[in-house]
């Protein structure tokens, strides 16, 4: 009955999420509606970027959450490797594709912002390049965690990868910045800029809150699924 012991913690999470998830989903829908209204209707066009600034309201929070998501993966990896927390493995498995989608949305919206603003879909800008590499790290994590017939091996291997990846991220960021300043004439306009007008900041923060809530809801729904899938696998193997 070792499997029952392992599931003790995830079962508690499941009860918790069944209580919290409806509230959280409602809050997500509400904040998202407000955020979209502020972003698309209420906020004025930027004096520099014009209407195109509206892309930033998705692009920037996606970038934040993609980075935070990798930190979450690393934290969950440590929880699995150090404390053998059984829920951490399932949550990491659930969170990795979510983080990857946020990184992908960040890259694609950045590209769609770049075409009217920079005149090209892709610039080897330091931030875009780092985000691309972060996306690749997510892909590696997803592929590794699913590459084993024994799911728990995949969990542990991916946990080690996430920890090494999170140590490497600042190094990658530093080297890409270096590479970029070496190769790129500094004429390219930076995203964001030094000061952000409050009229832009409010919708940005509301959209960030909405996407954070969406991130949490997605991870919780997918964690529930992973818990059930593990139970199903265990039942199958017991037969």
């Amino acid at each position: 009955m070792a499997s029952l012991h392992v599931l003790a913690n995830p079962a508690r999470f499941r009860r918790f999420s069944q209580k919290v998830l409806p509230v959280l989903s409602g809050a997500t829908a509400l904040v998202l509606a407000v955020g979209l209204y502020l972003a698309l209707v209420e906020s004025p066009p930027d004096y520099q970027q014009g209407e195109t600034v509206r892309i930033m309201f998705i692009h920037v929070p996606s970038a934040w959450l993609a980075m935070a998501g990798y930190a979450l993966l690393a934290g969950l990896g440590a929880a699995l490797l150090v404390w053998r927390h059984p829920l951490a493995a399932l949550m990491a498995r659930a969170a990795a594709p979510v983080g990857a989608v946020f990184a992908a949305v960040c890259l694609l919206t950045g590209s769609l912002w770049g075409r009217p603003m920079w005149g090209t879909y892709w610039v080897w800008d330091a931030r875009l390049t780092s985000m691309l590499l972060l996306f690749f790290l997510y892909l590696g994590h997803i592929a590794l965690s699913r590459a084993y017939d024994d799911a728990e091996r995949g969990d542990r291997a991916a946990a080690i990868l996430a920890l090494v990846g999170v140590i490497n991220l600042p190094v990658i960021k530093f080297s890409v910045d270096w590479w970029n300043t070496l190769h790129q004439p500094a004429s390219v306009m930076k995203l964001g800029g030094p000061s952000i007008h409050p009229a832009i900041l409010t919708p940005l923060m509301v959209m960030a809150a909405a996407l954070l809530l969406l991130f949490v809801v997605l991870v919780m729904v997918r964690t529930e699924t992973e818990i059930d899938r593990r139970r199903l696998d265990a039942a199958e193997r017991a037969q």
């Binding site: 209407e51 195109t52 509206r54 998705i58 949305v105 919206t109």
Partner: peptide, 10 residues
């Protein structure tokens, strides 16, 4: 079109 495209992508 690019703004609409970005929101559609999201």
């Amino acid at each position: 079109p690019f703004i609409i495209g970005a929101y559609v992508v999201a």
